[in-house]
Design a protein around this nucleic acid. Structure first.
Ligand SMILES: [Mn+2]
Ligand SMILES: [Mn+2]
Ligand SMILES: [Zn+2]
Ligand SMILES: [Zn+2]
Lengths: 138, 138
DNA sequence: TGTCAGTTCGCAACCGATGCGAATAAGGTG
DNA sequence: CACCTTATTCGCATCGGTTGCGAACTGACA
């Protein structure tokens, strides 16, 4: 995701308005590696801007996703997580604390595959489960 | 998942009862490679047993999952899919028709990984997106 | 056949997310 | 600066998928 100041320009040139709510979310998301949910962002936003609506958070998140500034990732059946890292990468989920960590996998595209007769893969997503450094102890 | 006759025994020895509803679902799931949703199974079941409840389908699916006879898999944000194949395998999802195909990936456990400092992976799941043989044309 | 724990099934509730629309505010224009 | 137009905010209703609850029912064993 681009920086807040760049996003201000990007929004204006698209005929979109730059509101305080949006600017706050730009700031909360920029360089954020936590993969927050809409609810988590709403909680953080509410602390700085009481009265902001969860609806507005959802709205802005889907605007940013549509503009390619965010990636939406989902695990299992829980709520969606939002990822300002739109580079090609994968994730490791800590089953203890729920942390989500960016992972870069070499050779993900040339995985030796068996069983897909004629299936043409366009993309692959890999999710590791396990325990993160903090939860694993050591 | 074991065969319907084996499941009858397994259920009885666990103090669980063998009802017509459960037996129907045993049959619908055995050797099923379609990865059906609860709703899809409910539709099939209703055709053979009008009046069966969606609630009962959910109930039986979660019983079977708890017994290790089924695996629950979810993609994106849609409904859960149920998989009688409990072997270690992965999936390919056709973005055109929605088909879900079993995939066996060699060397999935020794993927060259970068970025996870201290994360201890216990399992990995890989999901390919693309188009299936039928939808790809060729 | 009787007993009783396990099961079915309808309904309410739940969660995450989206549709709708009135009130509001951004931001360009005169 | 005042005004106008259009986008946005935000509360509320609604949605799809799933689970909780509990009264009525039924399988299984004695
Ligand atoms: Mn990420
Ligand atoms: Mn499968
Ligand atoms: Zn952890
Ligand atoms: Zn297809």
């Amino acid at each position: 995701m681009r920086s807040p100041v760049e996003l201000v320009d990007a929004f204006r040139t698209q005929g979109l308005k730059v509101t305080p709510q949006r600017q706050l979310l730009f700031r909360l998301l920029h360089d954020n590696t936590q993969h927050p949910t809409a609810d988590a962002l709403f909680a953080q936003a509410s602390a700085q801007m009481p009265g902001i609506s969860l609806r507005t958070v959802y709205q802005t998140l889907s605007d940013l996703t549509a503009m390619g500034e965010l990636q939406q990732v989902s695990f299992d059946t829980g709520p969606a997580h939002f990822d300002p890292n739109v580079a090609d990468h994968h994730h490791a989920v800590c089953d203890v604390c729920g942390a989500i960590i960016d992972v870069y996998v070499d050779g993900a595209d040339q995985l030796a595959i068996d069983g897909l007769d004629g299936f043409r893969p366009a993309s692959a997503s890999i999710v590791f489960h396990g325990s993160c450094a903090a939860c694993a102890g050591t």
